[in-house]
Design a protein around this nucleic acid. Structure first.
Length: 475
RNA sequence: GUCCCCAUCGUCUAGAGGUCAGGACGCCACCCUUUCAAGGUGGAAACACGGGUUCGAGUCCCGUUGGGGACGCCA
């Protein structure tokens, strides 16, 4: 039997980090088994579903490289089919109409609570004659669920889980307005889409018992279930807005790489021995449900940053130049011509110092800024009179420096400092300030080679003459 | 409240009865060094608690505590 899985988000907001991981696990499982990975948009709640949210989910999945293998199925287009199934169950006596009003239901809840029992619908219309139906009250359709025995599910992650059927009540299949409920829609769609494995968040675990009953009533085989533990915030509580970024879009904007997100999310709740950093090929080859842990994991930004830094360094310099464009554009910097050349040439030194594309862009900006280069206040402080005078003298010397190579440049600068009885470290910081506008940068001589003779000499002149605007904040 | 699930360093985790309880992130120290990173070396850091079962328990069972989830004519 070929594997078919699906990711089934409801479009009531952006694609969040937990959903992204669920999608990833489904995707990996399908790839590992050579199966299909589908997307179903659960937009049956017309009031809360928005076009914008659908866009956001599709965009998020696309960015993460988790595009579905087939066009998405929109659950709202399948109302008729869902109704058809409910009506069939009704005809077969496996479901019944219920005229209980919201007030009656509320009373049942209160009574149950008072008696310390689970809050369940009491089945008052289960065997009652429909002729007794009150006039003018539109009924819902409920499943005639088994009242004795127990419902058991074999979860591929959580193991065997059983619940007494008396804990479960007769769930609503069709609302009084005739629309299908989530429970009905999910089960019917999963059956019709040929889903073999339902991999979803642990928060759906208790829904599964009811869904199992529905499968049984419909007479369809149950897919295998795998409920993966939830992701919690750093404090152990449910991940929420107050923990910072939830939307995958925000991670893109913070400069994270999709492959880093995939790797981090995968390792959050799944492990294969001591393997930490996996390529997609390795992840696909190694992924299995038995490796999924059973306890919830906390989201750790520090680790994500580390993982991202790793994957950043795996990218080629040319790729990084392209990835940097939108981030540099935010600072009004356009990557083209000489600037593009410098970025590519300087990328090796830049990427070792960045964990995200945002950091990389920040560190790379000095290669693109036109003269006179703005200098951060703390860097400008390194350009005192003594050092400005030194730079004024060093500039012309570098103008005739041959060859224009790192080792030679270093020899020249060190020799210059020594001849002047000046500490090289101080000269280096002054040079750094003049050339990069910062106290922090890639190696000085690498920077010189990348900038080129003309630009270096020009920037030194600017600094010696005090022409640079000083920025209030530093790096 | 009821039901269900979970429990190894601060965090992510390895561990499928016998390990000096391993790795990674983070942290600390040292090395490298023109800054900051990167890189290298080393270090501190965990089996929630209590009972069993067993020659032997982080591993199996029960309980306690703690955490989480679900209890809608939402999805």
């Amino acid at each position: 039997m070929s594997v078919v899985v699906r990711f089934a988000p409801s479009p009531t907001g952006y694609l969040h980090i937990g959903g992204a991981r669920t999608a990833l696990f489904n995707w990996l499982f399908a790839r590992h088994h050579g199966g299909r990975y589908l997307l179903r948009i659960e937009d049956t709640d017309r009031a809360r579903s928005t076009e914008e949210a659908i866009r956001a989910i599709l965009d998020g999945l696309h960015w993460l490289g988790l595009d579905p293998d087939e066009p998405p199925v929109f659950q709202s287009t399948r109302f008729d089919r869902h109704r058809e199934v409910a009506l069939r169950l009704l005809a077969e006596g496996k479901a019944y109409r219920c005229w209980a009003t919201p007030e009656e239901l509320e009373a049942m809840r209160e009574k149950a609570r008072a008696e310390g029992r689970p809050m369940r619908y009491d089945g008052r219309w289960r065997d009652r004659d429909p002729a007794e139906a009150p006039p003018g009250v539109p009924p819902v359709v409920r499943l005639k669920a088994p009242q004795e025995g127990e419902t058991v599910i074999e979860d591929l992650v959580q193991g065997t889980i059983r619940v007494a059927n008396e804990q479960l009540d007769d769930m609503v299949l069709l609302r009084s307005d005739g629309t299908p409920t989530y429970m009905l829609s999910v089960v019917v769609d999963d059956i019709d889409m040929g889903i073999t494995h339902v991999i979803r968040g642990h928060d759906h675990l208790t829904n599964t018992f009811r869904q199992k009953q529905l499968y049984d009533a419909i007479g369809a085989p149950c897919p295998a279930f795998a409920h993966i533990p939830l992701i919690h915030g750093p404090d152990g509580a449910k991940l929420s807005k107050r923990h910072g970024a939830l939307s995958v879009t925000e991670y893109r904007e913070m400069g994270f790489l999709p492959e880093a997100m995939r790797c981090y999310l995968l390792r959050l709740g799944w492990a294969h021995g001591d393997k930490e950093l996996l390529t997609d090929a390795e992840a696909i080859a190694l992924f299995d449900l038995s490796g999924v842990g059973r306890s919830p994991a906390r989201f750790d930004m520090a680790k994500l940053l580390n993982v991202n830094a790793h994957f950043l360094r795996q990218r080629s310099d040319a790729e990084l130049v392209e990835l940097l464009r939108p981030f540099l554009a935010k600072e009004g910097l356009v990557v083209e011509g000489e600037g593009a050349r410098r970025l590519a040439a300087g990328m090796a030194g830049l990427k070792a110092r960045a964990r995200t594309l945002v950091e990389l862009a920040r560190g790379a900006a000095f290669y693109l800024r036109p003269r006179p280069l703005p200098i951060a206040a703390d860097a400008a402080a390194r350009l005192d009179e003594v050092h400005r005078a030194a730079l004024a003298e060093l500039g012309p010397r570098l103008a005739t420096q041959e060859p224009w190579e790192e080792a030679a440049l270093e020899a020249t600068c060190r020799g210059f400092a020594e001849a002047r009885g000046m500490k090289f470290a101080g000269l280096a910081q002054a040079l750094r300030a003049a050339l990069t506008g910062s106290t922090v940068s890639p190696g000085l001589f690498e920077v010189m080679v990348v900038l080129g003779r003309e630009e270096v000499v020009g920037r030194l002149e600017d600094a010696a003459a005090g022409r640079n605007p000083v920025l209030p904040a530093s790096n």
